[in-house]
Design a protein around this nucleic acid. Structure first.
Length: 672
DNA sequence: AGTTGTACTTAGTAGTTTTCCA
DNA sequence: TGGAAAACTACTAAGTACAACT
């Protein structure tokens, strides 16, 4: 099988909660049993190289590290040679490396035994504006109280943003702002339109400009201070290991920026105090200290959860958490488990598909609805679609919450039959628009579901996510609606890579990878706002291409002339000249091709976000396998750039060990 | 069966840093 | 060497899922 090329030596144990099932060669990700020999090779050769050519190996290592930096891979110490023949330094770093994926897991539902941390970092206190920066009401300067001024600065900082032109935003802001005013201020300031924040806004712009202009030393100082904070608060000890915390800073106060048409946009997100914070840590740990003169809301010791601290946010009343970084064991394990569940789905997806097709014919309406919804989730990678409280959030839907108004049925459209048109706002108010032909049975069912309904009625009125997931659970252990998204994303990447990858040049291969990735992003509807500078940068690129083309024809002309010259004289000098010109043409041709590929790639990527699928949906093992296959004997680290998201979890860091070994194998030191 | 609360994953944006290339 | 572009990080909103409760 194409992508079953190596063993990453990570699957000696199954992730927690996953029953180890016998592997079969199913063409979906590598399996441990098949590739023992290749694994040995990967592990052996570099060590040998290292022992025999210690100095050279050392030097090489440095080169790699630079290259790693180039590609943004910062886990240097984790890639160090296991043997540690380099001496103490390596040995020490070896101790830091932790192969958590080789460890036993808790089976009692607990997430840790020991947890110690220093608590969150609070937002810096408000610094009042200098007196010269004035706020004007109705044209007249007005000195605001500290709390009213602070909230005013939140608005002033957003003045250039579209948000501040929106009615709801302004209304919400003004209402909450007034709550922070003194009664005197309240009586004066009654109309937002009469408020002039422009001096404040200018002041902040000047400040950020000044920050950019700071000297190297000043910038360095800030960087060091940040680093210190990170070192002190950014890590915790969980079960004997130092782990990076994801968000150790408490969210600063500000104005709520909901996405899409959010009814609460502009509301004041209040400042979080220690009294709002619940600390979670183990009993026998050194408990974090609240800032002097303050208290925590609560300190608890719940090892059934993974968070270190939490607070309740005032806009939606939801709980926010401080949790570990994706590189942590706890997140990595979950990630791994997710992909293993997707692999299990692959084994029974045919059966499930057959089942829901059968269910389209059911006598029971609820079963038909369930079956059609599942078909959409599977075929279109729609999200489950939980119910949401009306009026509390933007009006968005997923599969189960689709309404009549979100689909249109066309018995015939152009040359296709039974076409369904979807048009709705999904997560983050991203529009999902798609026209797809469906099977006749699905179409007839949809017509049935639509009967006697108003546009705002639910399409699947007998279905919700909990019913659907309960059903899925019966079909496969651990199966939920979102597993289909993971599964279909990963399998699409794999299929597309197979289909698209040619034996072409490296840039063409990168383009293939990006195209495969793009197919996934399109499937999952991962969109982005086109970069602000898109048109301009596209034009720049086109100019470069034109220029290169001119260069090319000039170079070709020169080559021709040189050839003619050589034909006439037949001397060595002219022969050399022909060679030089020929090389020049070749070089320019390559450059031109690279530019053209780049242009295509960028154009196709205009509105598509690849990051989300890389980060959350694509099993990194597929990318690694592809990468190893198509680079064969020369390792282009550049290719790694196609998926730096691989480093997301340290589980996947081990994949880089494979890279490194592979690299050393392919570039044996020249000792003859 | 519906409702509520909690915990965790997935998502796009904005800002910063690094790299690339003339 | 500096400006554009790419890469990367931080941030936090917005989903999914599930258990406990009613």
């Amino acid at each position: 099988m194409l992508f079953n090329v190596f063993d990453v030596s990570i699957r000696d144990r199954s992730p927690a909660g996953i029953k180890s099932e016998p592997e079969e060669d199913n063409g979906f990700y590598p399996s441990p049993q098949h590739n023992k020999s290749s694994r040995q090779e990967y592990e052996y050769k570099p060590k040998k190289v290292k022992v025999e050519h210690d100095k050279k190996a050392k030097k090489r290592k440095h080169e790699y590290e630079e290259d790693e930096e180039d590609e943004g891979i910062k886990h240097k110490k984790k890639i160090k040679d296991k043997k540690g023949t380099d001496g103490k330094k390596v040995k020490k770093e070896e101790e830091e490396k932790w192969k958590w994926w080789e460890e036993e897991r808790y089976t009692d539902g607990s997430k840790w035994r020991f947890l110690e941390h220093k608590g969150p970092v609070f937002a810096p206190p408000y610094e009042p504006l200098p007196d010269k920066v004035k706020f004007y009401y109705d044209g007249k300067p007005m000195k605001l109280s500290a709390s009213a001024e602070e909230v005013a600065t939140f608005f002033a900082k957003m003045l250039d943003h579209e948000y501040t032109t929106k009615d709801i935003f302004r209304k919400n802001f003004f209402k909450d702002w007034r709550k922070e005013m003194t009664s005197e201020e309240k009586s004066v300031i009654t109309d937002l339109n009469k408020c002039d924040f422009s001096e404040m806004s200018e002041y902040f712009k000047a400040q950020s400009e000044a920050r950019k202009q700071m000297s190297k030393e000043e910038k360095q100082k800030i960087k060091e201070e940040n680093e210190r904070l990170l070192q002190e608060y950014g890590f915790c000890i969980m079960d004997n290991h130092k782990e990076r915390i994801g968000n150790f800073r408490i969210e600063p106060p500000g104005l709520f920026r909901g996405r899409g048409d959010h009814p609460k946009m502009g509301m004041l997100k209040r400042r979080i105090r220690p009294e709002d914070i619940i600390i979670n840590c183990s009993k026998d740990s050194k408990h974090p200290k609240p800032p002097p003169g303050t208290k925590w809301k609560e300190v608890r010791h719940d090892n059934k959860v993974t968070w270190l601290a939490s607070w309740t946010e005032n806009i939606q009343g939801s709980i926010k958490y401080i949790m570990l970084n994706p590189s942590s064991r706890i997140k990595g394990e979950k990630d791994w488990q997710k992909y293993e569940t997707a692999r299990r789905l692959k084994k029974c997806v045919d059966r499930i598909r057959a089942q829901y097709r059968e269910d389209w014919k059911s006598k029971e309406m609820r079963i038909r609805q369930r079956a059609v919804a599942l078909y959409f989730i599977d075929k279109l990678a729609l999200r489950a679609g939980n119910e949401k409280e009306e009026g509390e959030t933007a009006d968005t839907v997923g599969c189960c919450s689709l309404r009549v108004e979100h689909i249109k049925l066309y018995p015939k459209l152009d040359d296709q039959e039974y076409v369904v048109e979807f048009d709705f706002l999904g997560k983050d108010s991203i529009r999902y628009y798609n026209k797809i032909p469906v099977e006749k049975r699905v179409f007839k069912n949809l017509q049935l579901f639509l009967e006697n309904k108003q546009p705002e009625d639910d399409l699947f009125d007998r279905l919700n996510t909990s019913i659907l997931n309960k059903h899925l659970q019966e079909l496969m252990d651990g199966l939920t609606a979102k597993v289909f998204r993971t599964y279909n994303a990963s399998i699409t990447l794999q299929q597309q890579l197979k289909e698209l990858t040619s034996d072409d040049s490296i840039p063409a291969k990168i383009l293939s990878y990006n195209r495969a990735n793009r197919a996934v992003a399109i499937l999952c509807n991962h969109q982005r706002a086109p970069p602000k500078t898109f048109e301009k940068s596209m034009q720049n690129l086109q100019n470069k291409i034109d220029e290169k083309q001119t260069q090319l024809s000039a170079a070709r002309k020169q080559l021709k002339a040189a050839k003619a010259d050589h034909k006439a004289s037949h001397d060595d000098k002219s022969k050399k000249a022909v060679e030089v010109k020929r090389k020049a043409v070749q070089r320019i041709e390559e450059q031109l091709m690279k530019l053209q590929v780049q242009a295509t790639d960028r154009e196709e990527n205009k509105q598509i976000a690849l990051g989300t699928s890389k980060l959350n949906y694509l099993d990194p093992r597929i990318s690694v396998a592809w990468y190893l296959l198509c680079t064969e004997d020369i390792l282009y680290l550049r290719l790694l750039a196609v998926n730096y998201y691989l480093i997301r979890a340290s589980f996947f860091v081990c994949l880089f060990v494979v890279f490194l070994y592979y690299d050393i194998m392919s570039n044996p030191p020249a000792d003859k």
